[in-house]
Amino acid sequence: MAKTILAVDDSGSLRQMVAFSLKAAGYQVIEAVDGQDGLDKAKKQTVDLVLTDQNMPRMDGLSLIKALRGMTSYQRVPILMLTTESGDDMKAQGKAAGANGWLVKPFDPQRLTEVVKKVIG
């Protein structure tokens, strides 16, 4: 069965690009417009991978990661941060929050699918 990915980003164009590329690579994609929306959608259905932007209205990526890690069903689900914050600070924060890795924006569809394949096959 196709693996499901939750893609959380407040930018519609980015989200569309992510969803399109991953769908083309054979994944199912659930889109969410911010952390809160992502959390709501994650609660409805446990996914195989979460990709989340960091800075979003309502709830940012770090808070989302922390909230997900607090749910038993999401303790082992890989979470990647999509971010332009390449600094150590952001990565340390992401790691502390429970992210498994990061992907730097801007990225192209190839790189995205490459990374996703590495994580969930």
């Binding site: 930018s11 417009v33 911010d34 960091q54 800075n55 971010t83 332009t84 914050e85 390449s86």
Partner: peptide
């Protein structure tokens, strides 16, 4: 870790259009 020279994080887009 080093990645490209994009120093800034993608903070949230505007609240209004997003919601």
């Amino acid at each position: 870790v080093s990645v490209e020279g994009k120093p800034f994080g993608r903070r949230a887009a505007d609240k209004q259009p997003a919601t």
